[in-house]
Design a protein around this nucleic acid. Structure first.
Ligand SMILES: [Zn+2]
Ligand SMILES: [Zn+2]
Ligand SMILES: [Zn+2]
Ligand SMILES: [Zn+2]
Lengths: 165, 165
DNA sequence: TCTTGATATGTTATACTATGACATGTATGA
DNA sequence: TCATACATGTCATAGTATAACATATCAAGA
């Protein structure tokens, strides 16, 4: 699987070399435009999430931040992660109590995640909020949604292959 | 269970007097049929969840179990809740780290929850797993789902009304 | 009968996740 | 200059969850 991310909702491998700096550059641009401060801690936290292509616990992020000379106490990580999630640069996976960089922060979306319980990979699928199941239910009941959590656990294509072998 | 919950996906009030014992009786029957042991702790835990019509933290359940003479340590609650969730008698709301009795344990379903951030009510909607958003995504990527988490936060109809007033 | 294995309940201790409260520094604008 | 907002750091604490071990029960098998 060569290119960067030919299948945005899949588990394909990709060339990782440039994708971190590209994403950071995009985040930087976005923050500048929106009048937000992508400070050193926040940027480093984003890089950490991007470097791994999986969900990291707040304390994992904290440990790396601390290694890099930032504060070593939980609020340091939680505040950086709050910033990133609040502004769509990262998401929290509720099922895992963990965080992951957003796969396509360009446009507003309701993220849906596929979590492989075998290899712990996490894929983010972009969904059209208006067509989603939750929206239909909400409409039927008069409920006004502010945030939706869509997460599926199971086995990814790669691990399914290995199982067969 | 016919009129136990006239509006299974809504936030309507209902007569609570008999719904607990009805649900417990049904659970008892189900367990008997399936060769499962609905032991005193487990049954009491289910009753506790049914009595409140909202999501309870494990430690809330534990406190009540302890009052009733059961063990007072976390595993007591977690094990009872594990049993109930494993067998479809209760669900965990990941967003809240809390548990709620299943609104319709009769049939297999993928539960979806509507969580009111104002009054903290939680409604469970029954969804057809095969038609769901997640299933479509999974099918497109070759991912095999074992469990789906569908949770929406927002404002319930009752609270929306109050806001207007 | 005795034994073994599976299941269930209880305990202690510990690990993991998250937030409150306060001090300091820096930039902006009245 | 001063007030305000915001960002970072600290210490302390709250909230959620599991590991590991002891004991009890019951059913199946030697
Ligand atoms: Zn995203
Ligand atoms: Zn996998
Ligand atoms: Zn249910
Ligand atoms: Zn409400």
């Amino acid at each position: 699987m060569p290119e960067m991310d030919p299948n945005p909702i899949g588990f394909a491998k990709h060339d990782h070399s440039h994708c971190v700096q590209d994403a950071v550059a995009a985040a930087d641009r976005m923050c500048r435009d929106a009048g937000l401060q992508l400070t050193p801690v926040r940027q480093r936290a984003l890089e950490i999430l991007l470097e791994e292509h999986r969900a990291l616990g707040a304390y994992d992020v904290l440990a790396r931040l601390s290694e890099d000379g930032f504060g070593s106490q939980p609020p340091v990580a939680y505040r950086a992660l709050d910033f990133l999630t609040k502004h769509g640069l990262a998401h929290k996976i509720e099922r895992l109590n963990a965080f992951i960089a957003c796969a396509h922060p360009e446009d507003r979306h309701t993220p849906a995640f596929l979590i492989c319980t075998s290899c712990h990979a996490v894929a983010e699928a972009e969904t059209d909020p208006s067509h989603s199941l939750m929206s239909q239910i909400a409409e039927a009941t008069g409920f006004r949604i502010s945030r939706a959590v869509l997460e599926a656990e199971g086995t990814c294509p790669n691990c399914l292959e290995k199982e067969d072998a």
